[in-house]
Simulated assay, not measured.
Amino acid sequence: MTDKIRGSIGPDGPPWPVDLLADLHAGVLEPNRAADVRARVGDDPEARAVLAALDAVRTDLGALRDAPAPPMPDHLAARLDAALAEEARRAFGGAPSRPRPPRPAGRR
């Protein structure tokens, strides 16, 4: 990928490509390369800001993972059930199935 925000000057000096910083943050760089990049980006306030933003995103996503999901609205569940039943009818033939009765509140 080309880093369009910070420029595409080589990964050996500032400005550091955001893709390289994201790979460093994700832990997907080869260990020797990661150690070299980590040591060199420590002096760049812009690189530290990008890494801090990536930390914040990780924290925010972790909080979403642990949050309870709201229940699916009944009208959407009914539409989804109908669409799946129609696809099953088309794929496997036969008469269309009857719609299921509404689900009790709180159960999905």
Rank of each mutant, 00 (worst) to 15 (best):
Val18Gly: 09
Pro73Met: 10
Val41Asp: 13
Met1Gly: 15
Arg100Lys: 08
Ala53Ile: 02
Ser97Asp: 13
His75Pro: 01
Arg65Met: 03
Ala34Gln: 09
Glu46Lys: 08
Arg107His: 08
Ala22Gln: 03
Val57Tyr: 09
Trp16Ser: 08
Asp66Tyr: 00
Leu64Tyr: 01
Ile9Glu: 15
Leu61Ser: 11
Ala47Glu: 07
Pro14His: 10
Gly10Ser: 09
Glu87Lys: 07
Arg58Val: 10
Ala39Leu: 04
Ala83Glu: 07
Asn32Met: 11
Gly94Glu: 01
Pro15His: 06
Glu86Pro: 00
Gly94Ser: 05
Leu24Met: 09
Gly94Gln: 02
Gly7Tyr: 08
Asp36His: 10
Gly10Leu: 02
Leu24Ser: 09
Val28Ile: 13
Asp55Arg: 08
Leu21Ala: 10
Val57Asp: 15
Arg33Phe: 10
Arg107Val: 15
Ala26Asn: 12
Asp74Ala: 15
Val28Leu: 06
Ala85Glu: 06
Arg98Tyr: 04
Ile9Thr: 14
Pro14Glu: 15
Gly94Leu: 00
Pro17Trp: 04
Val41Arg: 03
Pro73Gln: 02
Ser8Tyr: 07
Ala69Gly: 07
Ala77Phe: 01
Asp81Cys: 01
Asn32Asp: 14
Asp23Phe: 03
Gly10Phe: 02
His75Ser: 13
Met1Arg: 11
Asp3Thr: 11
Arg100Val: 07
Gly42Cys: 09
Ala47Met: 05
Leu84Phe: 04
Ala95Gly: 09
Gly94Ala: 05
Ala26Tyr: 01
Leu64Phe: 02
Leu24Thr: 11
Ala69Asn: 09
Lys4Thr: 13
Leu61Cys: 10
Asp55Val: 10
Arg40Met: 13
Arg58Gln: 14
Arg38Cys: 06
Arg79Asn: 10
Val57Cys: 04
Val57Thr: 09
